[in-house]
């Protein structure tokens, strides 16, 4: 039987990318917990495995074995589809991220644009999930997420446009290749093109924090007032997928910063 090697290649990439995103999500959480613990003079996770390294794994097993509760009165379709709608675009974004000179799933000419297109879908998923779960806290939170993300997307896109202007391409692979060599080739230090490139990076970074709803822009989740924000009604893997999507978005943001600027 003949199978097109391209399909095998894409499948391998699909598995690889999902594994990459999931592992990143798991260990970013571990890192965050551990570092927050040290700042707060705690120890953090330590029971499972050395330095609590297996903690994310056990957390995952716990989430997967929990019952998927669909509360009465929710919109069952939206409620179930929303976590997937958050997760899938995040994974899709990895398609155009070049991992090395040759390691890239799809070398699109509009890579940069594609990533931002996918990133906007994530907000929609969150909104649908919150709306579908018929919880007022979730709806308030979703309204905050949408307004915040739309507001910060504009300055972020403007900084990205500067990038496109100085590199002359939207192909991430080309952008990375242009920056080969020492750090003085990095776009962030490309002062001859524009002396404000470091500032642009700073704006991009702040916007990225807001886009991914991290502190200090975590009004959307605001656990002290909105319970758990948009995820209030989600338990088990519904929540787990949302959570992984969120962290996958952080990884995407970090990858964007790396490919675009460094």
């Amino acid at each position: 039987m003949y199978v097109d090697p391209e399909i095998i290649r894409l499948l391998a990439f699909l598995v690889g990318v999902i594994a990459f995103a999931a592992l990143n999500a798991a260990y970013l959480v571990w890192l965050e917990r551990k570092e927050a613990a040290h700042i707060q003079r705690r120890i953090g996770p330590k029971e499972v495995g050395p330095f609590g390294l297996l903690q994310p794994l056990v957390d995952g097993i716990k989430l997967m074995t929990k019952q998927l509760i669909v509360p009465a009165g929710v919109d069952p379709v939206l409620f179930k589809i929303a976590p997937i709608l958050v997760m899938v675009p995040a994974i899709m974004s990895f398609v155009t991220i070049p991992f090395s000179e040759t390691l890239v799933a799809r070398n699109l000419d509009i890579g940069l644009l594609a990533i931002f297109a996918f990133a906007s879908v994530n907000v929609l998923g969150l909104l649908l999930g919150a709306w579908g779960s018929r919880n007022k806290y979730a709806v308030i939170s979703a309204a905050r997420v949408v307004s915040q993300n739309v507001a910060y997307e504009i300055p972020m896109l403007v900084t990205v446009v500067t990038l496109v202007m100085i590199t002359g391409t939207m192909n991430l692979h080309t952008i990375v290749m242009q920056q080969q060599g020492g750090f003085w080739h990095w776009n962030i230090f490309n002062l001859s093109a524009s002396p404000l490139m470091p500032v642009a990076f700073l704006i991009f970074f702040v916007c990225m924090l807001a886009e991914t709803n991290r502190a200090p822009f975590d009004m959307a989740e605001a656990e002290s007032e909105l319970v758990a924000g948009a995820f209030t009604e989600y338990s088990g893997m519904g929540f787990g997928v949302f959570f992984m999507g969120e962290y996958a978005n952080i990884v995407i943001g970090a990858s964007m910063a790396t490919t675009g600027r460094f």
């Binding site: 927050a36 700042i39 707060q40 003079r41 705690r42 502190a215 975590d218 605001a222 656990e223 002290s224 007032e225």
Partner: peptide, 15 residues
């Protein structure tokens, strides 16, 4: 402070 969204001071105060 926890109500206002800051987590660390809670642990310092508990200490």
């Amino acid at each position: 402070i926890l109500d206002l969204g800051g987590f660390s001071p809670l642990l310092y105060a508990f200490d």
